[in-house]
Amino acid sequence: MTLTKRIIPCLDVDRGRVVKGIRFVNLRDAGDPVEQALEYERQGADEIVFLDITASSDNRETVIDMVRKTAYELSIPFTVGGGVRSYADVRRVLMAGADKVSLNTAAVQNPRLITEGAEIFGSQCIVVAIDAKRISEGKWEVYTHGGRRATGMDAVAWAVKAEEMGAGEILLTSMDFDGSKDGYDLDLTRRVSESVNIPVIASGGAGNPSHIYEALTAGKADAALAASIFHYAEYTVGDVKRYLMERGVPVRAVQSSQQEEKGQPA
């Protein structure tokens, strides 16, 4: 019995609609975050991350509505990030049914927010998202505001501090590799993963299943997040898991829904 490595598709949501959704899939409404999430659940996703990229802040109700609908339908865990600025936001998102919230800029500006959230809801609900940019060999700087603002903070040190403050998990994005499809920043991922005693989700750079394999082995990540390789149906979550399984990485087996129906006890 081994704790499996998690595969986590990420959905970007703008004003309650999925921006880059799964293509070539027979969904009634490809812009509907709930339908997209359910499709990933069927494919064998272990969790889902929703990233709210809406620029304006007057859409909180739209997000909460999405969280509620998702919690109603999904039977795997999901995280909501983006625009979570205050304790009130943390509370609203979690009380609407999200399993975790991910804090990025707000956590840098006010690390107490991590502690407050963890004390009330438990560490497992509080994910700290770190956007890191390489500044020299073995050095990465934390950026906030969607990667627009440098903080001068060291990414590894910030991950350690976030754990101390009560974070239950680190979602680590390499800004240098994000969108490159050249693979994750394995040095960064390994450095952070070896420095903290909480799970680390690698993010940014996945272009094929071997990149995910590397992040989970050489990079020592506990989970891998990917967006575009799933959205454009280049690979299904099942394809990635089969690839990992063949190479000895422990993952949760993927069953088709038909098999599951047959497998149910009468």
Partner: peptide, 30 residues
């Protein structure tokens, strides 16, 4: 690493009402 977070497999030690039909190696979210 703590918390124990994610999908882990189970081994059934005793058949009872709760474990009926549960396979060894089946994964659950912890």
């Amino acid at each position: 690493k703590v918390p124990h977070m994610g999908w882990n497999s189970v081994r059934v030690l005793r058949r009872c009402a709760l474990t009926r039909g549960v396979q060894d190696g089946e994964h659950f979210y912890f």
